[in-house]
């Protein structure tokens, strides 16, 4: 038996070896070509950000400098864009986590009649294309804006205070509006993620804690939140990445320079074709991209878990 099998298997492994050598080479070639395609556009932005003579074109840097990054700190609008983006997206993400935490938990634990319809509705809401909402959302925001500003004007007659409050709480061209709409757009996915993570936590744990005399709040604080931490991480990362990269909502609802966030500020700076400071913009692009890349690196392992919700994060 052995003597019959041996030669054939050796002969096969010979041809298999050369075949797998070709296949192996083909695999490397494919991967290298695709990787080059993926990397190509980054060479320019990374080189130009450190190039004292940055231009629109990919070129060998005239030297290496970090001046562009230092200049960002001195540049009032650059600093403001970064702070606005961090503030608005950060608050929206936190709010989204709190609401999705409660919502996801309720949706996971309830057996009420509204559970199933609501889950289907969330899938459908996820699919609504944001550009299709711009006209009605604009109307809703205008309506809320008038209401809030009416309230502000009735609260104080001091014009400066009115201006300040209006900047904070306006729905159009104010922080509150942008935060709420960014949060709302990320909620469906975040709720879905939280619901799946809470589903995986057995109800027994809560009941055991309750039997041991833990109060509702203690159960949440010491049992549920620690167990759902990976869920919060996943939901928060996706909400952050999506809101951080969003271009449409800032475009719709910010106009004054003080409120400008990174995507819109950079876009408008880039439109002034006659006076583009490529060093400044590429350095800013690097700063703008880094948090998203870092968040994505952490979020990547959760990506497949969000598929059941139907739509990617």
């Amino acid at each position: 038996m052995l003597t019959i099998v041996r030669p054939t298997s050796e002969g096969m492994s010979m041809s298999e070896n050369s075949a797998s050598f070709v296949a192996q080479r083909r695999a490397y070639l494919t991967l290298i070509l695709i990787s080059l395609f993926c990397l190509m556009p980054f060479f320019w932005v990374v080189l130009a950000a450190f190039d004292p003579k940055a231009s629109q074109f990919l070129q060998i840097p005239a030297g290496i400098t970090v001046d562009h990054f230092w200049n960002l700190l001195a540049n009032e609008s650059g600093v403001r864009w970064v702070l606005n983006s961090v503030g608005i997206v950060g608050t929206a993400t936190l709010l989204c986590l709190v609401l999705a935490g409660f919502g996801g938990y309720a949706l996971s634990r309830t057996q009420a009649w509204w559970k199933r319809p609501l889950l289907y509705a969330i899938i459908l809401v996820r699919i609504v294309p944001p550009p299709a909402l711009i006209v009605p959302v604009y109307k809703v925001m205008l309506f809320l804006n008038e209401w809030v500003n009416g309230l502000i004007n009735s609260l104080t007659s001091d014009v400066e205070q009115q201006m300040m409050l209006s900047r904070m709480f306006s729905f159009v061209d104010g922080y509150l509006g942008l935060i709420l709409i960014q949060c709302a757009m990320q909620l469906p996915l975040a709720i879905w993620i939280m619901k799946t993570f809470f589903d995986a936590i057995p109800k027994d744990y809560e009941e055991a804690a309750a039997l041991d005399g833990a109060s509702q709040w203690q159960t949440v604080r010491h049992v549920l939140i620690p167990l759902a931490l990976p869920g919060f991480a996943a939901a928060g990362l996706f909400a952050f990445i999506n809101a951080w990269g969003d271009f449409l909502m800032p475009l719709m609802f910010t106009s004054s320079p003080e409120l400008q966030t990174l995507p819109l500020g950079m876009f408008r700076a880039f439109l002034r074709v006659d006076a583009i400071d490529y060093g400044f913009l590429t350095a800013l692009a690097v700063i703008y991209t880094l948090p998203a890349v870092i968040a994505f690196a952490f979020a990547r392992k959760f990506l497949t878990q969000t598929f059941s919700g139907g739509v990617k994060g």
Binding site: C38, Q56, F247, P263, T289
Partner: peptide, 29 residues
């Protein structure tokens, strides 16, 4: 990691990067 990188880039930066890639003239990438 390399293949995932483009997916992490904000939309605005995508436009910015590719405008340089597509730049006209003989120096465009």
């Amino acid at each position: 990691a390399i293949i995932c990188l483009p997916n992490a880039v904000p939309e605005m930066v995508v436009g910015f990067l590719w405008i340089s890639m597509f730049a006209s003239g003989e120096y465009g990438t």
